[in-house]
Design a binder for these strands. Structure first.
Length: 475
RNA sequence: GCCCUGAUCGUCUAAUCGGUUAGGACGCCACUCUUUCAAGGUGGAGACGCGGGAUCGUAACCCGCUCAGGGUACCA
């Protein structure tokens, strides 16, 4: 068979790296989608290349504006910006496939002219080269036409050479006139001068189709890198993570007030790791260390606990000015603070909480007693502490001791309580848990002494008296 | 069924050319912190899927098996 060749103009962008993130806005943004975007972005930033954002909206039935908005919003939240694409344009646009019909027609014509495409049942198929035969196919439960093609070698940075053979012609233009994914994906990668394709492993079997297409156009395929899938947390079942799994959606992290840099850090660690043992990394450190070659081959399981830990590490490192906004946002949502809240007090409380609490979403429950006299009481702790016969005595003793203190700072408090304990031949421990419970209703929290100092004498004493009253209902 | 990919502690992973008490992190447990505590500190348990080979020797190389993941659409 004589191979007809034709000329394709490939855009020239010097020898710069051009990667692309090509999502289709069909639903909420999945963590795996975000990771693909992130790795492409990291690679572009690392190499000084360009990241192209291309919206693959050829499936009109499933695309929605809401999904697109959520996608762009999620990328921005994560700090992933694009050099060409929606909202900013670029020289090889438009960047929505739904607006690139003319380009696809042009490319399709080249295939038609070269005898590499044909119409059947109203759709247009790409024609593979090789001897044709029909065979019963077990999966399709029917006789199908197959082609004895030459195998295609996919050069993959992560996996090495992968050999695969396409054996059936495939649709490039659907019978409703819309071009299909494989076709537009390749055409756009050519037309946009894409040099590296970094995508999920689920695309690996598609890639032989894509390489066939590149070959038909007489264009050298880009460098491929197929990264591992993100799998469900073992407790959630088997298989790849689905949109319904907890922690699967970027929107969820936004709503739960996760730190975007922590989300970025965590998802970067799924299938990739820095060569040293440092795991908590800033965005800049990620860019500095990232390399496609260091990607893992095997699927990575999502781990909610680790996500939470990374988030905590980033929260702890935040300067208080940056800690304040998300914290206040979480507290306002819970109705604990508003514009009238004393800023100095708020800051003091949050400084106490920052080193202890690992998520902003838990902050309201953790710190409610600082802002309101109505807060949850842990009944287990209550039972444990108050069942002791001497609980009432200890409270009765500590109230006047606190009232008579000439100051109410942590140091004075400790000295005062210690003196009281000494005078009763008790350990300071006899008072601490009761004090904590009296003012907060729980058994844990920020360091006790600074916490009492922050709450102030009036509140502390009032709450102790309230507890005392509840202990002696008969009196 | 067929095709492709993969396989180190429960989980994420590290280990330049094959020679390590197989390292770190999350989680777990214990201890500890001027005797609160979900933070901090210290320590502990915990892995090379199985079977063959090649090699003086391997987690690292080859083969088979098993298991896992993906694909097999006029979805992307």
């Amino acid at each position: 068979m004589i191979r007809r060749t034709f000329h394709i103009t490939v855009p020239r962008f010097m020898s710069q790296v051009r990667v692309r993130f090509a999502p289709s806005p069909t639903g909420s943004t999945h963590i795996g989608t975000a990771r693909t975007a992130l790795f492409n972005w990291l690679y572009a930033r690392k190499t000084g290349g360009k990241l192209v954002l291309r919206i693959e909206d050829t499936d009109k039935e499933r695309n929605t504006d809401a999904a697109l908005e959520e996608l762009l919003n999620g990328l921005k939240w994560l700090g992933i910006n694009w050099d060409e694409g929606p909202e900013i344009g670029g020289e090889v646009g438009p960047y929505f496939q739904s607006q690139r019909g003319d380009i696809y027609k042009e490319y399709l014509q080249k295939l038609l002219d070269a005898g590499r495409a044909y119409e059947k049942d109203g759709a247009i198929f790409f024609k593979l080269e090789g001897e044709r035969y029909t065979e019963y196919d077990d999966y399709h439960k029917a006789e199908v036409e197959k082609v004895r093609t030459q195998p295609v070698v996919i050069e993959d940075v992560i996996r090495g050479n992968v050999t695969r053979r396409e054996e059936r012609d495939f649709v490039i233009v659907r019978s409703n006139g819309d071009p299909s994914f494989h076709f537009v994906n390749v055409v756009d990668d050519i037309a946009m001068g894409i040099t590296h394709v970094l995508r999920g492993e689920d695309h690996l079997p598609n890639t032989s189709k894509h390489v066939e297409l590149f070959n038909a156009f007489g264009v050298k395929p880009p460098v491929y890198a197929h990264m591992p899938m993100i799998l469900k947390d073992p407790s959630q079942g088997k298989g790849k993570m689905s949109k319904r799994d907890r922690g699967a959606l970027i929107e969820e992290y936004q709503q739960r007030d996760f730190l975007p840099e922590a989300v970025v850090n965590f998802i970067a660690l799924l299938g990739w790791s820095p060569k040293d043992d440092q795991e908590v990394l800033t965005i800049d450190e990620l860019i500095e260390r990232f390399d496609i070659k260091d990607l893992q081959k095997a699927g990575a399981r999502f781990d909610e606990k680790k996500m939470s830990h990374i988030n905590f590490e980033h929260m702890k490192r935040l300067p208080i000015e940056r800690y304040l906004p998300p914290a206040v946002s979480a507290l306002s949502k819970a109705g604990l603070v508003d514009d009238s809240t004393d800023q100095a007090y708020l800051k003091q409380v949050l400084e106490l909480c920052q080193q202890k609490i690992n998520s902003f979403e838990d902050l309201p429950a953790f710190s409610a007693y600082f802002f309101s006299d109505t807060y949850a009481v842990d009944e287990k702790v209550e039972k444990k502490l108050l069942k002791r016969a001497d609980a009432a005595d200890r409270i009765q003793e500590v109230i006047p001791a606190l009232e008579s203190l000439d100051a109410f700072d942590a140091v004075t408090l400790e000295r005062g309580i210690q003196e009281l304990a000494d005078s009763k031949e008790l350990k300071i421990f006899a008072y601490f848990p009761l004090l904590r419970f009296a003012v907060s209703g729980v058994g844990g929290g920020p360091d006790l002494l600074p916490m009492l100092e922050t709450l102030g004498r009036d509140t502390v004493v009032a709450r102790l008296k309230k507890l005392q009253a509840s202990l002696s209902p008969s009196a």
